[in-house]
Every structure is written in C-alpha cells, then in structure tokens.
Design a protein around this nucleic acid. Sequence first.
DNA 1: GTTAGCATGTAAGGAGTTACATGATTTT
DNA 2: AAAATCATGTAACTCCTTACATGCTAAC
Lengths: 237, 237
Amino acid sequence: MLELAILGLLHESPMHGYELRKRLLALLGAIRAAFSYGSLYPTLKRMRQRGLIAEEAPAEGTAEKGGAVKGAAEKPLLTGRRARKVYRLTPEGKEHFAQLMAEAGPETADEALFGVHFAFFSRTDPATRLRILEARRRRVEERRERIREALARTAERLDAYGLELQRHGLETAEREVRWLNELIASEESRRPEQRNDFGDPIAEPERHQAAPAQGTPDPAASAGDPNKQGKGGMRDG
Amino acid sequence: MLELAILGLLHESPMHGYELRKRLLALLGAIRAAFSYGSLYPTLKRMRQRGLIAEEAPAEGTAEKGGAVKGAAEKPLLTGRRARKVYRLTPEGKEHFAQLMAEAGPETADEALFGVHFAFFSRTDPATRLRILEARRRRVEERRERIREALARTAERLDAYGLELQRHGLETAEREVRWLNELIASEESRRPEQRNDFGDPIAEPERHQAAPAQGTPDPAASAGDPNKQGKGGMRDG
DNA sequence: GTTAGCATGTAAGGAGTTACATGATTTT
DNA sequence: AAAATCATGTAACTCCTTACATGCTAAC
C-alpha cells in the first residue's frame, strides 16, 4: 500500500522521504493516518534496490562533485539541513505502478487500499477504474448484507449498543454503496463504449501510461488537468 | 483487539473457538472482516496460558448418551464432531477486560478498536463510555480539520479524483462527528451527575463491569425492532 | 537557550493474514 | 460421491508501528 502510494506520488515529481510523507498525509489523510518514518524509509530503500525508484542526482546541471560548496546562492538542494535523498520514478517503477493499479482483486477492495487506488485514478485507464469501483462496491454490498442478516437473525441477542453499532454500520455501508454507484455511473456515462469486449476503441483524449514500458514521455506534464474540469465532474450530471 | 473482543463475548457465556468466530463476525461484521482462525486459536492459547480464560470442564451434568461418564469423562466433550474446547472467562479475565475497556488512550480512538469498545459498552460504566466516545470524537475531528486544511491549501494540486476523495472523506468525518455528538449527548442526559470531579458517586453498586440492569436503564429491552427509526436510536425516551 | 521543524535511518515488536495440515459429519 | 460445515491447530510471512539514534537550522 505504501509502495503504491509512493509510486503514485513520485509520478508527479521527484521527492525526498520527508516531503513524501507530508504529501502522503495531505492526499491520504482523509483515509488513514500518516505513515511512519519507520516504514517509509525502509520501503524507499527496498524500492530503490528493486529498481522501482532511483536516487536523483544532487543537482540539475551544476557541479558534478566537489567544486562549489553548499551555501551558494541559487536554489540550494542541501541548504544547511541534513542531506536529503531525492527519489524519482524509473520506467520499471512506472510499470509496476500500472500493474498494481490494474490488479482489481479482493485486496483492492479493502477500505484503505481502495482509497489509495482511488487517489491515483487519473493515472489509470477508465476500464481499470470501473473494475476497482465495482470490486469495492461488491465488498461493501457484502458487508451490508451481512449486517442486515445479523439484524434480522440475531437482533434479540444484541444490547442497545450492539444494535446501534449495526444500525450505524448499515447506514455507513448503504451510504458508501450510493457513493460508489454515482462514481460508477459517472465513469460509464463518460465513456460508455469503454465497456465492450471488442478491444480498446478509445485512445484519443487520455494518455494514461497504462501502456507497458512505453518510453519516458514525461506524463507529468499532463498532471495538472487529467479530468479536472471543476466541481461537477464527479457528481453525476 | 481480538483479545478484547474475546473477553467481551465470553462475558456472555462460555464458547469454543469456532463459535466465537461466528459470533465475532455477527457482532463486529459492521466494522471489520472476520478474524482468521490463524489468529483466533493462538490468541486463545495465549490467553489461557495467562489465565484470562480457562478450559471449561465437560461441566453440567451434560447428557452423556448411554450414561457412560466414566473414564472417558476426561476426554473433551465431543458431540459427534471433532473435540471442541470450550473456554470460559476467569476472574482475572474479567478484570483484564475492565482494564482494557477503561483505557481510553489514543489507540482506543482507532476506527476498529473503537468499534470493539463500543460493542461492549454495556459492560462498562458511563464515565468510561463517555471518555471513549470523546476520545474518538477528538480523533475524527482532527481528521476532519486535516482534510479541511488540505482542501483549503492544496486543492489546486489535486485532480478530480483526489478532490473527490477529500470531499467524501470530509463528509464521512462530519457525519461521524454528528453521530458521536448524539451518542455523547445521550450518555450525558442519561446521567449528568456522572461527570462531576468529586469522586465517583455511582461507584457503590457496581461490582466490576456487569450489572447492566442496575447501572443503566437497560434500553436493550427495546431491541425487538431492528428497523426502527434511523435517528436517535440510542434515546430510550 | 530551548523548542519546533527538517531530515534520515535502525531494531524490535505487534497484530494480524494466508497457506497448510487434519479429520469428522451433514447435506446435496 | 462430492461439497459444505464443523472443528482445531501450526508456520511462515506481511506490513506496519513505536522507540531509539543522530544531527542540523530557524524561530521564539
């Protein structure tokens, strides 16, 4: 999960660990608490060893080594503070990210993992988005049915608090299903042809990098406006 | 968490592992998935070693078909199926449960753990309930504020999906705060004197945690209709 | 002159999961 | 005859957290 989130964020621009954590909190804070450094740094290390990310050269263009010491004007990379390791995404990392995103198995439907996937939806293709949303909906519907059963069958064994827990849980599940339904409808209405099984008729507007190991045409350039068209985008029509 | 849940359930009646898991799913299914046997059985073992639970002897005059209770009595009771180990709560276990419930630290405020505490609210005193509810509210309010800040400060860096994630997360947090507010108000209105700082005026009649019929108006009696009105479920009127 | 923030890391451990192993009994 | 349900357990592993260790700079 953390790995996916790192890959997703680095898609945007190279970053060092500390910054990554802050961005992670800002992006995923609605879902879960901040990742600790105790998991972040070892994960970065592992990912670098696997070649998913790479350490960015100290500076852009300027001194290769030695030469001008820090403290120079310019845009200081290690300005006084402790040296930071800036990581960038490698092509392998991009591909791994695409794979992780495309796997819409039962794990993908877990609350937190679903949230991470969702956060990076603009970097996947519509078909994958739909599969993930549907997997999550299935999961929540199952939970909803379980609660309904528990209420119907064993309500008499529950005390007031147990009952309230079920009631609130049921309401929460129903609310999330409604939300997912809206999102799914929105995805489908946006590109209904996407769902046919005759291939991939669409290829025009989005250049999502789901394509395997395509060059490195810096898709970060499009990071500013994938689907961004204002408020109404998500919410039904 | 699993330990707390087991202690809470065994409060009701002795049970074996398999049954425990089913009851756990029925009670906590609204919050989280079922615990796996791979964690359940080792946990039971550990708890027995610590003396929190004990293996129930064949107990009660159990109708031993054929009347032969003799030497085979030492063998676990097997009703045809594989031998089951029935566990019951020990006094140490009861005390440990009370302690775990009373700890309303920051961990208690985690979604799942809060849910487990809540499920067993009727086995704690009102002051503890209030502390747990307030700890959870604090936590959710913090998350809500974080999201608001993220929306105010970095909304322009978010794409449509990132934005929708924040929006939905904010709505979820606001909804939960409202729910907690209702619960807190309900607890306070039920016994306002409870909150004074001059001691514990209602400390006398409660042995440990039990005696729900005494400590509370036992609104569990109204558990007959699960599909009652959505709002104000806890208000016993 | 101390606190807060920046910055990276390691070691130990918690709390679960999956997969495996075994076997009886009831239902289809 | 096969599948589902009942029933208990172990081993390996995942993924994350807490606590510790280090050291610099800005601000109060």
